[in-house]
């Protein structure tokens, strides 16, 4: 639902900032850069108002889904899914089953949304590390299960913010600074992930949504340390999520990024592209003519 809503709002924003038709006198009149910017800003304001209005008018029910107080229907839906898919390992009412799955009392809805929406849960088998895979449940369903687990024993919750809101509210420069101190050591500068001891690894963040990033920091899934709200404030989490979003969406300015894997990939490239091309060239240069 969040994403559907996001799409709608994006469409509305486009509507708001639509260009003036080419034939109109304003478009042909010479305008200074400042006037153009002022015009853009004015249209932006109008668009935002419009969006806000429409949002308030059509979307109150949707908002409840990401709100901290979920509806009873959500909890019921979550319980239904839980009883169908999770109960085998995590037991009745999230009590946990010895040797199969841990208790979920107190893990909070953030952890559930992260684990289910990224496809890690339900887990296929017990491994060194549970991996991201195509999720079985939608984010809304994941949130519903989260609501159910939350109702059982509380725990960390995600804020009532969509991915777009998180990104829009973040300061990427500060996020970058925090990323380099706290995250890059495991997830690497390019957020491509890295190896940990004995088969464990820090996953790539290429497909992580801002809410996933937030949930991971908040709950410390698997071997990731917890970055509670006392340590990294919600604003700082927003900054980091926005920075990671920038890493994902800002195209490489220097050409093909070869996976941003660093010098190892560059070394492979110079031999596979550079040396191979030049050795073929030497064969051609020296080769005799028929």
């Amino acid at each position: 639902m969040t994403f559907g809503l996001g799409r709608m709002r994006r469409a509305l924003r486009h509507l708001g900032s639509a260009r003036v038709p080419a034939g109109s006198p304003r478009a042909t009149a010479p305008r200074s850069r400042w006037r153009r910017r002022a015009g853009n800003a004015a249209r932006m304001v109008v668009a935002l108002l419009l969006v806000g209005g429409v949002y308030a008018a059509v979307a109150p029910g949707v908002q409840a889904n990401v709100a901290s107080q979920p509806s009873a229907e959500d909890i019921a839906e979550g319980k239904a899914i839980y009883d169908a898919s999770c109960i085998t390992c995590h037991g009745r009412n999230g009590q946990g089953v010895e040797g199969r799955g841990p208790s979920l009392i107190g893990v909070g809805s953030a952890a559930v949304e992260f684990q289910v929406a990224t496809g890690r849960m339900p887990a296929a088998r017990q491994d060194a590390q549970v991996e991201r895979k195509p999720p079985r449940y939608t984010r809304e369903q994941a949130q519903a299960i989260g609501a159910y687990i939350q109702s059982l024993g509380g725990g960390p919750e995600l804020p009532d913010e969509t991915d777009e809101q998180i990104v829009a509210g973040g300061d990427i420069a500060n996020g970058g600074r925090l990323f380099r101190v706290n995250c890059s050591s495991c997830h690497a500068f390019g957020a491509g992930g890295g190896a940990l001891s004995s088969g464990k690894f820090a996953p790539s963040l290429a497909n992580s949504t801002p809410r996933d990033v937030w949930a991971a920091m908040l709950t410390g899934p698997q071997n990731m340390p917890v970055f509670g709200n006392n340590q990294l404030s919600p604003q700082e989490k927003r900054d980091i999520a926005a920075y990671i979003y920038t890493l994902q969406t800002d195209p490489d300015p220097g050409g093909w990024g070869i996976g941003r894997l660093g010098p190892a990939a560059e070394g492979v490239a110079i031999f596979l592209i550079g040396m191979v091309a030049l050795v073929l060239a030497t064969l051609w240069i020296v080769g005799k003519q028929q």
Binding site: G220, P225, V226, F227, G228, N230, Q231
Partner: peptide, 8 residues
Amino acid sequence: EEVSPGGQ
């Protein structure tokens, strides 16, 4: 109290 258990 600013660092949660399991945090660094």
